[in-house]
Design a protein around this nucleic acid. Structure first.
Length: 293
DNA sequence: ATAAGGCCCTGACCGC
DNA sequence: TGCGGTCAGGGCCTTA
């Protein structure tokens, strides 16, 4: 599932392929893919536009067009956005095709049809619900503490809340909690500031590592070859310490990784390194921030 | 206001 | 081999 690192990589890869390209015509074969405006209006408005700007906000790709329009793309679970030659066979689950002025097409395909596209002059209105970017100055331990204060929901559920911090999904939530040594079911409001600081740091760490790995796994290859079977993310998946490692030994202590369900999401953690009870914000006499390796 | 559950979708997987 | 059932999950919506 593409989360922030994969989306960031996607945009970086797409930019040189799309910059300056004009949309000659477009077709939509699954209208619900277009969240805004209608599929008909989408086609009418995007034809003639050129891609001039590229960005990301949370898990949303922002493709800036001429005429002050922005094409916003959310891949959700299984979405793919790629450029292929005009005459390339139409892959299964292709829902939107935009023909470009260089003999290529920009195609959106999505087996589960959860992904969405917006075409709007006002991207801020689409993105208004998003919290701070994880690497922005406003995502600060004090901000995190204020947002968690008084909350009884499991910390994992709040990490998945895009209004808290934008871009963290199921994979990186599990990985961040593991690195911070925090059980996913801990009521968010009970975390002491030292754990909030550790979690803040862990979120940035796993995302940064994810971007590095997702980028290097592409190795400069073009998006045409950028396939991720089963929607699995890029090279970082081999680096996961707990995600989908149920029953395997914890890389820190060797205890078997446990899987449960939290906030309707598969959740993986080490019951020894991430204790639910007896975590008391006490005096850990050992240097808790010393990471072996 | 917060928390929890349902919904959208289809491929993969499992047991029979 | 084929079939039916279950699972996966991001974000939005509804319910309590």
């Amino acid at each position: 599932m593409p989360e922030l690192p994969e989306v960031e990589t996607y945009v970086r890869e797409l930019a040189p392929l799309l910059r300056g390209r004009q949309v000659l015509d477009a077709s939509v074969t699954w209208p619900r893919t277009i969240a805004l405006p209608t599929a008909e209006e989408f086609i009418a408005q995007i034809v003639g536009q050129r891609f001039v700007d590229f960005g990301r906000r949370g898990k949303y790709m922002l493709l800036g067009l001429t005429d002050n329009l922005t094409l916003i793309v959310h891949l959700r679970m299984t979405g793919h956005l790629l450029t292929v030659a005009d005459d390339a066979p139409l892959a299964a689950h292709t829902h939107v095709v935009m023909r470009l002025d260089n003999g290529q097409q920009l195609r959106f395909q999505d087996a589960r049809k959860f992904g969405r596209l917006w075409l709007t002059p006002d991207p801020a209105s689409v993105l208004a619900h998003l919290g701070p970017e994880p690497f922005a100055a406003d995502f600060h331990p004090d901000y995190l503490a204020a947002r968690l204060h008084g909350r009884s929901a499991p910390i994992k559920a709040l990490l998945l809340d895009q209004s808290l911090v934008a871009g963290v999904g199921n994979i990186y939530a599990d990985e961040a909690l593991f690195r911070a040594g925090i059980h996913p079911l801990r009521p968010a409001g009970t975390l002491p500031s030292i754990e909030i600081a550790a979690l803040h740091n862990a979120v940035q760490e796993v995302l940064r590592l994810g971007i590095a790995k997702a980028g290097s796994s592409l190795g400069g290859s073009s998006l045409q070859n950028y396939s991720r079977p089963g929607g699995a993310p890029g090279g970082f998946q081999e680096e996961f310490k707990v995600f989908r490692r149920t029953g395997q030994p914890c890389p820190q202590c060797g205890a078997p990784i446990v899987r449960s369900v939290v906030a309707q999401r598969g959740t993986h953690f080490c019951p020894h390194c991430q204790p639910l009870a007896g975590h008391i914000a006490s005096s850990r006499r050992d240097a808790s921030d010393s990471n072996p390796g």
